[in-house]
Design a binder for these strands. Structure first.
Lengths: 344, 344
DNA sequence: ACTTTTGTTGTGAACGTTAACGCACTTTAA
DNA sequence: TTAAAGTGCGTTAACGTTCACAACAAAAGT
């Protein structure tokens, strides 16, 4: 392995000069710079990260800006799991992580959280921009020197380092295919869109409908519900949906809020008759999956999103490696039979 | 962060003594050892890996003992992809990887490969023990000081560091469930076991049959084929299977050799009528999956197996961290709609 | 002709860990 | 009894990188 010392020797300069060239810190004459540059390229020099980090041994501080973990049926606990895992692995690398949680439904709460994040003197920020309008403005205010990575969803025109998330439309297409396999005969399907203003929701539904559009035997019917879906409320909806469609064979729920619907179907002893496809490996969903009430859950790999998010920040900020601008998460199909292998 | 220096200060000894305690290198009195141990625990000391590796800066050499990548329908190219990825990420960490390929069907070839591996002065070995009888003997001959990790399959009573692979039985169960969903009416299903002596094959078939045993509407029929399955040979088998069962609605192939069967079904224009479930994301399988001839592929996460295998070796050998004795790979369900997200 | 500034380069300490070495002392063997 | 071997500890150089600082010369300002 080539070292700075070796380069210095070949260029007849000191290691200090080589260092200045490497880091563009000026104070080197053009000719020397050129000479050193050539030798660096020629020898394909790569800095020894152990030595670099030993010397620097700076504590890096990352922030995570995301909704309260209790919201969205505790969905947000999943990425936190992954973040915690990454945090443990990076313990020796002096990475500190601070959470800035906000209430999805309160702009004030978000402002408080984001202000705190800005004041925290962070080296990097991982954020889930679930409230579109608010975040459009917010990303403009992020200081230039603070690199940030989106997970879950993203703001298109922002100057982000990377976006880690799922292709929502295609996950809807996948759900369509699965639903088609599940219901064989002519049938009506309900698509339930809780909180239709949230990211993903629309894209997932569009994907689902676009797939089934090519198929004549299934007629989907969409229901928008502007609430996070309490169990009583879901009871009402489910009943009205069942009454609406005498030939209802399946329900597609476009987010993690699948379990209350499952509970209703179960309580009406319709499990197996009305198939359910939903999202995300939260505890309650898993319970109904194992009971056979939910047929398929599509996973966003939420845990991995958190894990990869932190690692991408680490690579970008600490190791100064380049990270992919887009990390597509797999569209995992989870059933009763394989769910146990998806929980760490 | 606690350092050796700090521990030495608190214990009133030199850093040399602390180092000896940490590495059990003797030459320390019982009392001092105890005292230092207590302080180490108390402060939750963790060595700085940057400093350690900077100092050591030894080049580590790992070996990979596995079948020729061309065998099993080029299945083995998949783990190699993952190994290569890990190799690139560990470039700066001075990890060198040497392959020792063998012909699955030649014991001589295996002996040559394994001897070469033993002579190569390795720091760790990653191996896929696909030929059971031969490997039972082989693992006894591995020198004590050479740590090894199994991937794909494993030898039960060996002294391995970790085994990375899939739960074959359960993957059969999963295939059973999917098959049940695919074929609705009373139907006959063929289970094709190519190379029934290979690992996995039996377990997968058992899992499949055990699931369908609880279900009366599907009657499975097993076919054992003691060949890797040339296209002509598969033609014969497929025809005889179709002739055998007038009500054939599905075929379950227990390994990567799914594509020749798919080709036959396609050429007979039976795609969609006879459903196919198979294994592994090799190129040809993916083609038939996208064409709609294969309904589901179950992935062993072969790429990840290679990747994690190398990293587990790295963690065990280089970082001296503890690694899990068993790393279960997920049972990924792959369809036409999500396959693109499973290829890096 | 002098100080001051600017430009270019070299020097050396520090980061935390490892392990060889040396010193003083004690035990064992011939 | 005396050399050899063993025990318990401290000291120190080295790994490769970073960066503050010193050193010196040349150019610019007074």
């Amino acid at each position: 392995m080539t070292t700075i010392k070796e380069i210095a020797r070949r260029a007849n300069v000191s290691i200090g000069t080589v260092d200045r060239v490497l880091h563009n810190r000026g104070r080197v004459s053009k000719e020397t710079k050129e000479k050193v540059r050539r030798i660096i390229e020629q020898l394909d020099y790569r800095p020894n990260i152990f030595a670099r980090n030993l010397k620097l041994s700076k504590a890096f501080s990352f922030g995570v800006l995301m909704p309260n973990p209790s919201q969205d049926s505790k969905y947000w606990e999943l990425p936190i799991k992954g973040i915690t895992k990454a945090q443990n692995e990076l313990l020796a690398h002096k990475v500190r992580i601070t959470y800035f949680h906000y209430d999805k439904y309160s702009e004030n709460s978000f402002k408080r959280a984001s202000n705190a994040a800005f004041k925290a003197n962070l080296d990097g920020l991982l954020l889930a921009p679930v409230v579109s309008e608010v975040f459009d403005k917010f990303v403009q205010e992020i200081p230039d020197h603070l690199p940030y990575i989106f997970f879950d969803s993203f703001v298109p025109n922002a100057n982000y380092v990377s976006y880690i998330g799922q292709d929502s439309f295609q996950s809807g297409v996948l759900a369509g295919r699965l639903m088609e396999i599940l219901v064989k005969e002519k049938a009506t399907i309900a698509v339930i869109k809780f909180l239709p203003r949230d990211y993903h929701i629309d894209d997932r539904a569009s994907g689902f409908l676009s797939y089934l559009g090519e198929n004549s035997k299934i007629s989907p019917k969409t229901y928008e519900v502007d609430s996070s879906g309490s169990i009583e409320y879901c009871q009402q909806i489910t009943e009205s949906i069942i009454n609406d469609n005498q030939n209802l064979c399946g329900i597609y729920v476009t987010n993690a809020n699948t379990h209350p619907i499952a509970e209703c179907i179960k309580s009406k002893s319709l499990a197996g008759k009305i198939h359910i496809i939903g999202y995300d490996l939260i505890e309650e969903n898993i319970r109904y999956l194992k009971e056979g009430v939910i047929d398929f859950l599509i996973s966003q790999m939420s845990e991995k999103q958190g894990y990869e998010g932190v690692f991408a920040l680490y690579k970008h900020v600490v190791l100064k490696e380049t990270v992919n601008k887009r990390m597509r998460m797999q569209l995992d199909i989870i059933t009763k039979e394989n769910v146990d292998y998806y929980q760490s």
